[in-house]
Write a protein that binds this DNA or RNA. Structure first.
Length: 1071
RNA sequence: GUGGGGAUGGCGAAAAUGGCAAACGCACCUGACUUAGAAUCAGGAAUCUGAGAGUUCGAAUCUCUCUCCCCAUACCA
């Protein structure tokens, strides 16, 4: 009967209603979801909340490639799953729409970044929509929207108005600080501040001018203006944060970066170092990511030690001290010299006249070396003696003071107490300059290298520390240093304050204007301060940031609005005419209340440090606050955050910092933004390469001169462009040559010899290359005895279909490859095979696959399934379009499962399934429920796709049509392939979306087995299987198995030494 | 150098708790249906877990040694 049906269907054209018409289905449901606002989250619900967030994208001009949606698909599956599980899910999306690429494009084309950004967002939105994400778009954010960055500016103002109190270990209002200053000065203040803060009394404070007070307060504020050494990138015309620099060049574009002193806004993130570190223990992130942040924060516990410099006759009257930070105060008696960074301020003061020339030369040389050189070159030991000596705090022995560039000015105090026996760098330095290496470790040989372990330390030759271990000696050393007032226990962090200014146009303007050079905040009620128009997006001729070009960019404090610079100039002009001494008359009067606005803009991470709170608020209430208290209270923090690991030390650290700050000041109720975080791996492109070949020739004269590719001898000896199918190389043994390969192939060698004799016999070189000419003159003595092959990248669009074969006609017609239009492509079996290698997917590598094409050809559901099917979420894996037919075929089979009626009509059997006749199908269903639920909870999406395939294969084989089976199956699949699930759900008679249908309940009873097919092993090797009842006990199993004739056959008369029976698992017979 | 993660067929991969290695899919081969292709259906093959040692009745899984690859970080005192 059934066979007939299959045959039957084959004879008749299946009409379109019955076919899996994914394009129509997907469009239909995407429209419906949008119309019905199916995925709109509510801020009031009886259901428990769940917040699933993706790292929002920067909308680049290139649009999405198939690698981008990977994380979005995973989070969407999880969000949909949680809805089935009865949660009120917030799953929003938006755009990190300020940024460099739009601005670079604006510089090149003159187009306003807002315009290109808008266009790019449209493309992104279209691409995202067609993949069928369950985003609540009503909550979209764009960081470049004034209604959004109004609140970024607002947070900035809060940071400005706050300082970090170390006593209460939290941020507090600056106004509180001022109160204390007024009544008791700063002597008892324990706050995070600049190093150079001087002590003052209440009287001092009250006597200071307003400017002096403001200057002092800046040293305490959480965002402050300070002259800092910054990473200046001339090519980009801006400063970069430490995490925006990779290997000494800019992360974007790879431009060189130099050190430069500039007045910049900075964020006092260092105040939060300890809490950022401790907070890691409270969140569910991968260890890898936590380790990266831990290393970045770089906590080290030790002591600060002060050394007195021994005055010499030549030195000035002042007495100097050198303060150092050490993690090994226990090795204090091992100090045999000190090293200062060449930039250290004491260098000039303590250097003796005899050493001056040498020291100057050295400092000058290191200053010239770029950071990059210094970083790359860690092997060379260099340094100079200053001629000065410091006094050992305990032994009072003189210690020579050196300078060396292995000491970094930016870490600790820029000086170290060198303990060569306990630190390998100090050891190397001492060896190199013949400085003594006293051994203070008992029973340790330091003749070859330093002993830098903290374990099994027994201190010797160290006065009161003798015989102590690391822990005890450290404690004692600190105690003794404190006694003589030359040191104390100290903890150091590597984490530096983050520079917050960018000399760029396309970013948030600072809500700041300047009165007498002192920054003033614009009142929050007048925000947003919107970006002004400029005629060009480049720095000004004077080197000011692009905002310096704005004509309307002055702040009128009387009317609280932005006014033309003309007004400002007029006011300044009046002032000069009045000939008033500015300090005498208040600046406010002189400017007529109009002041210059800040010209820098905020960095990319400003807007992304708090956007997750913005999503919590509904559009209607977004004017009131960055998010209302109710919304913040309801959603708390992000339950699941998915994104790339490249943000480990940028976005993910800065967000945590801002959230802790907002928490301290009572603006939010949580102090960690992202409870659980998963880094999705990257989908790699599969680049295509072809092999260009050249003959390798050997001279067989009196001296055999072996193996050179022809073009190595002279460029003029070009035999033309030849490419070979990779299949040639696969057959031959290859050897490396010049980073590429060489191999032998008689046929090709002969061919090249002919060509080359024909072309170059009697050839004269135009450039008078003697070496090459001599070679040609002896042309008969040369043999082509190898082939040199080098890889050339080609666009994957030039391949035939999704195969690895090159379409030669296509490449010859492609203008990008016009150099090769006369080249010869040597095929094999009429095919030209390319080499395929996975690489990062990028336009420049010609290996980009566009999701639009995939969706059109296979549908969004296929794309979603395939991205998941590719492999574990966190792993890097190559994309291969050919494989998508597998999951696509699965969807078709699923469709067919619901269309087993006559002529392939939709059919499911609604009658309830009896226990006995449905046992097989129930078993399939419930093992699928169990596995899929486990998989989703473990974010193992690839294995659940396999599970679906198995289920559909089994149900197809069972010819299952029961609604009791197929309906719950649909809910399981729905998070992965929502469109087809909705369509079939509707066909099942539902009028509501499948998206909130309850997740099927797993019932173990359906999986209960009565027997087990036992593998019977002999000495651990499985030989055959035996079906035995599961309730059979150990002895019984052993008896039955041994009695079996196959067992006897295996034993060949031997008596088993031992029989291992694990009921329900295995039987192993030893002997 | 340091920290993290890996290594399983031609490819992507799967195998809580040690218990039939390679499920699922791609590619490959054969057959059916087709004028042919596409699609679909039925069937098939192979390779033996990076190397070495150990623990065990039994190891992809646990322990040790080594090799290679990827990522992060880099003179942090």
């Amino acid at each position: 009967m059934c066979c007939n049906t299959t045959k039957f269907a084959a004879y008749f054209k299946v009409n379109s209603k019955m076919r899996y018409n994914f394009n129509d289905i997907e469009k239909k449901w995407q429209d419906k979801w949008a119309q019905n606002e199916t995925f709109k989250a509510s801020n009031k619900s009886d259901k428990p909340k769940y917040y699933v967030l993706d790292m929002f994208p920067y909308p680049s001009g290139a649009g999405l490639h198939v690698g981008h949606p990977l994380g979005y698909i995973a989070s969407d599956i999880y969000a949909r799953y949680k809805r089935h599980k009865g949660f009120n899910v917030l799953h929003p999306q938006g755009y990190d729409s300020f940024g460099l690429p739009a601005e670079q494009y604006a510089i090149q084309t003159g187009q306003h970044p807002a315009v290109t950004t808008e266009a790019n967002i449209k493309t992104y939105r279209r691409q995202l929509d067609q993949i069928g994400f369950s985003f609540d778009w009503s909550r979209e954010v764009r960081t470049s929207n004034p209604e959004y960055y109004k609140w970024t500016q607002w947070i900035f103002i809060q940071l400005f108005e706050s300082y970090y109190c170390k006593d209460s270990d939290m941020a507090r209002p600056v106004s509180e600080l001022v109160e204390v200053f007024k009544t008791e000065g700063n002597t008892r203040i324990n706050a995070a501040c600049d190093d150079d803060v001087e002590l003052f009394t209440a009287e001092d404070w009250n006597a200071y001018t307003s400017e002096q007070q403001q200057e002092i307060l800046l040293k305490y504020r959480l965002t402050y203006l300070a002259e800092t050494e910054v990473n200046w990138c001339p090519a980009l015309g801006t400063v970069l944060a430490n995490d925006e620099i990779v290997n000494g060049v800019s992360e974007r574009g790879g431009h060189p970066v130099i050190r430069k002193k500039m007045t910049q806004w900075s964020m006092r993130i260092s105040a939060y170092a300890e809490r950022l570190l401790q907070g890691l223990d409270t969140i569910d992130w991968t260890d890898a990511l936590k380790d990266i942040q831990k290393n970045w924060i770089g906590k080290s516990v030790g002591a600060s030690v002060t050394f007195n410099v021994i005055p010499t006759e030549q030195s000035d009257e002042e007495s100097h001290t050198i303060s150092v930070f050490t993690t090994r105060p226990d090795t204090i008696f091992g100090v045999s010299f000190m090293t200062l960074a060449p930039e250290h301020e004491l260098v000039a003061k303590i250097t003796t006249p005899e050493q001056k020339a040498e020291v100057d030369a050295y400092t000058e040389a290191t200053a010239k070396r770029s950071e990059r050189d210094r970083m790359a070159d860690v092997k060379t030991i260099s340094g100079v003696f200053t001629g000065a000596y410091a006094e050992h705090p305990f032994t009072k022995e003189p210690i020579p003071i050196w300078i060396g560039d292995y000491v970094l000015a930016s870490y600790g105090t820029g000086a170290v107490m060198a303990v060569p026996c306990g630190d390998q760098r100090d050891y190397g330095f001492a060896k190199h300059f013949n400085i003594p290496i006293p051994n203070i470790f008992d029973g340790v040989d330091i003749s070859e290298e330093a002993f830098d372990s903290k374990d099994n330390v027994k201190i010797a030759n160290s006065d009161f520390l003798n015989g102590f271990n690391y822990k005890k000696a450290t404690k004692r050393a600190i105690y003794e240093l404190e006694q003589i007032g030359q040191g104390e226990g100290k903890t150091n962090y590597r984490l530096r304050d983050a520079v917050f200014s960018r000399q760029r146009y396309w970013g948030e303007p600072f809500p700041v204007y300047y009165v007498n050079g002192m920054p003033q905040m614009i009142d929050a009620e007048h925000l947003p301060l919107t970006l002004p128009e400029v005629e060009k997006y480049l720095p000004t001729e004077e080197g000011e940031p692009p905002l310096g070009r704005a004509d309307v960019w002055a702040w009128d404090t009387k009317n609280n609005k932005v006014v033309s610079n003309e007004v400002l100039r007029q006011a300044q002009h009046d002032q000069t005419n009045d000939n008033v001494i500015p300090t005498e008359r208040s600046d406010e009067e002189s400017h007529n209340g109009v002041y210059p606005l800040e010209l820098n803009t905020m960095p990319g991470w400003a807007g992304s440090s708090w956007y997750f709170f913005r999503y919590m608020e509904e559009q209607a209430k977004r004017d009131e606050a960055f998010a209302t208290e109710d919304a913040l209270k309801y959603w708390e923090n992000v339950d699941l955050y998915i994104g790339g690991s490249e943000h480990a030390t940028g976005h993910l650290l800065y967000s945590r910092f801002w959230v802790k700050f907002l928490y301290d000041r009572g603006f939010v109720g949580i102090d960690e933004p992202f409870k659980k975080l998963i880094n999705q791996g990257m989908i790699l492109g599969t680049s295509a390469f072809i092999y260009k070949i050249e003959p390798i020739i050997t001279y067989y004269g009196e001296n055999v001169n072996r193996g050179k590719p022809l073009e190595e001898i002279s460029d003029e000896l070009c035999v033309g462009d030849y490419f070979i199918s990779k299949s040639f190389i696969d057959k031959e043994e290859t050897y490396p040559l010049y980073g590429e390969v060489q191999f032998h192939n008689e046929e090709l060698q002969l061919r090249f010899k002919e060509i080359f004799l024909q072309r170059f016999k009697g050839f004269t070189f135009s450039d008078g290359n003697d070496y090459a000419q001599r070679f040609i003159d002896n042309i008969e003595k040369f043999e082509v005895d190898g082939i040199f092959a080098c890889k050339r990248q080609v666009d994957i669009s030039l391949l035939e279909g999704s195969s690895d074969y090159l379409d030669i006609d296509a490449i010859k017609q492609d203008t990008r490859y016009s150099d090769w239009k006369d080249a010869e492509f040597i095929k094999e079996d009429d095919k030209f095979l390319t080499l395929r290698e996975p690489e990062k997917m990028s336009k420049s590598k010609y290996n980009v696959v566009n999701p639009d094409d995939i969706v059109e050809q296979y549908g969004a559901d296929s794309l979603r399934l395939y991205e998941m099917f590719l492999g574990p979420l966190e792993q890097y894996k190559p994309w291969n379009t050919a494989g998508i037919t597998g999951v696509h075929g699965f969807l078709k089979k699923l469709w067919k499962l619901f269309h087993q009626g006559e002529n392939g009509e939709f059919y499911v059997n609604p009658s309830p399934l009896g226990k006995s006749e449905g046992a097989e199908s129930l078993k399939t269903l419930h093992k699928t429920i169990k596995k899929v639920e486990e998989d989703i909870e473990n974010f193992s999406f690839n294995t659940s796709v396999s599970t679906f395939m198995i289920a559909v294969n089994e149900l197809t084989a069972q010819k299952c049509t029961s609604k009791d089976i197929l309906q719950p199956l649909l809910v399981l699949i729905s998070p992965y392939a929502p469109h087809i699930a909705e369509e079939l759900w509707e066909k099942l008679g539902h009028s509501e979306s499948i998206s909130t249908a309850p997740f099927p309940k797993f019932e173990a009873s359906h999986l209960v087995e009565s027997s087990k097919n036992y593998p019977i092993s002999f000495n651990g090797k499985m030989r055959f299987t035996m079906e035995l009842p599961l309730d059979m006990d150990k002895d019984e199993i052993e008896k039955t198995v041994l009695a079996n004739e196959k067992t006897q056959e295996q034993l060949q008369g031997r008596t088993p030494k031992k029989v291992i029976v694990v009921p329900g698992k295995i039987v192993n017979i030893v002997g």
